[in-house]
Design a binder for these strands. Structure first.
Lengths: 144, 144
DNA sequence: CATATTTCAGCGCAACTGAAATAA
DNA sequence: CTTATTTCAGTTCCGCTGAAATAT
């Protein structure tokens, strides 16, 4: 069998990851996409607007707004007007959202372990570094 | 900023890959998902049934069948009854499908180059190996 | 005036569930 | 009888486009 494309391997990996995460998260009544949004928000410490999130997800601001609205109805995210720009709503986790994210992280810890079972600790760090560089190639400009 | 989860990085990478591939493929009137199906079929040399493909994509056989149907209407895939199992339809590329896949590969060659710009040749091979191992962790059982 | 964010309204379709027919 | 593949029918929902209001 010839060497498959890197893009194909990344797609395969994402399918595998998403599939396992779905199963791990379904008992928490949250989808992989919803979890990822929570994680993005947490990762960037509540500084993001809905429009900024939409760009990181490569989706339209309208679609992201719907996603956010779902998470707001679930009381996992909240919006607060930016003091400097009254039109911008900064998004952050609620206490409930923070707790759920914590539970999600616990739930998928073993998913991550399973996936990385074939890699040594050093290789895992190498892998992390490589993905980081791949992501960096997409943003000579800083993320907005 | 603390070390982000590997699963998060893989998700980010997939979003980036899909976004760029969409732009590269739209002039060929094919979606990333459709391209990936063609690539899967090509990669496995026409031995797959729709049901087998659906498992690899972690989607229901019904959904995969619809995807296949679209590609059949586009005359990119064809079905042929398995000589040993009259119920099973083996899927393979048509001549047109083979040509389009070739064009797609050309179109996304530079996408791949861009993404891997930050990695040396050796690192690229390392990366390929790591993803291979991650995928292997999901199939102690051989793929059906 | 140009640009960015948010929101309302409507649309298309991709992937789902349910059910049934065929075949090993 | 059980299991796997395919297919028909109906449905839900995600992400899209268009348009408008608000604010810089």
């Amino acid at each position: 069998m010839m060497n498959p494309r890197i893009l194909y391997l990344i797609k395969r990996a994402e399918i595998e990851v998403t599939s396992r995460m779905s199963r791990a998260l379904e008992k928490l009544s949250i989808t992989v996409t919803q979890f990822t949004v929570l994680y993005f928000v947490w990762h960037d410490k509540g500084d993001l607007s809905s429009a900024q999130l939409s760009r990181r997800f490569s989706m339209t601001p309208q679609s992201m707004n719907e996603l956010i609205a779902v998470l707001q109805r679930k009381k996992l995210l909240k919006k607060a007007v930016d003091p400097a720009h009254k039109r911008i709503l900064r998004i952050s986790l609620t206490a409930k959202g923070t707790q759920l994210l914590k539970d999600c992280n616990t739930a998928i810890d073993h998913v991550e372990e399973e996936l990385l079972a074939g890699l040594s600790k050093a290789d895992t760090e190498k892998f992390r570094e490589f993905v980081g560089k791949i992501l960096a190639s997409g943003r000579e400009k800083p993320l907005t």
